[in-house]
């Protein structure tokens, strides 16, 4: 009952052009049926994400480890709440990040869990920068 060949084939990597996404905006693309948030973070959001004491987080992870160096303004996360799989809303909640409407989990501008029942940070999908304005997810 594992995924069949066509489902696996449809889950091949995709390329996303980032050039139309302005600073402070984010887009949602679907990969393997999952929504992927790509945020073009503002200076304020990056600073906020880096100012946090990592050890104090429920799921300690530094912002540097969650983005690609040289492309700090881009946050790419799987937009599925780690609690029970709802889709968090971007630019909501108290941490300038994501807010899950189902059970009230809040993520910061690095997609890390800050408050609520979710046990882990929003996962970062495997991706690479093909060029400065294009990424390949998968």
């Amino acid at each position: 009952m594992n995924p069949d060949a066509s489902t696996i084939a449809a889950g091949a990597p995709i390329e996303v052009d980032l050039s139309p996404v302005a600073e402070g905006q984010d887009i949602k693309v679907f990969w393997r049926g999952k929504p992927i948030y790509i945020s073009h973070r503002t200076k304020k959001q990056i600073d906020e994400a880096r100012a946090v004491n990592v050890a104090s987080l429920p799921d300690p992870q530094s912002d540097e480890a969650r983005v690609k160096s040289g492309h700090e303004q881009w946050l790419v996360v799987i937009g599925i709440c780690t609690h029970l799989g709802c889709i968090p809303i971007a630019h909501e909640g108290n941490y300038d990040g994501f807010f899950c409407p189902c059970h009230g989990s809040q993520y910061d501008s690095s997609g890390r869990i800050r408050q609520g029942p979710a046990p882990a940070n929003l996962p970062v999908p495997p991706y690479t920068f093909v060029s400065d304005t294009k990424i390949q997810i998968g």
Binding site: M1, N2, P3, D4, T7, G11, R32, G33, K34, I80, H83, L84, G85, C86, C102
Partner: peptide
Amino acid sequence: TVITNLFSAIPYVGESIVTLLWGGYSVGNP
């Protein structure tokens, strides 16, 4: 989505059980 994700809480095998329930990478046609 919420109910099948309950099984992801099981340590070690949870994620594989969820994939088995979904037949894909998320809740969908399979």
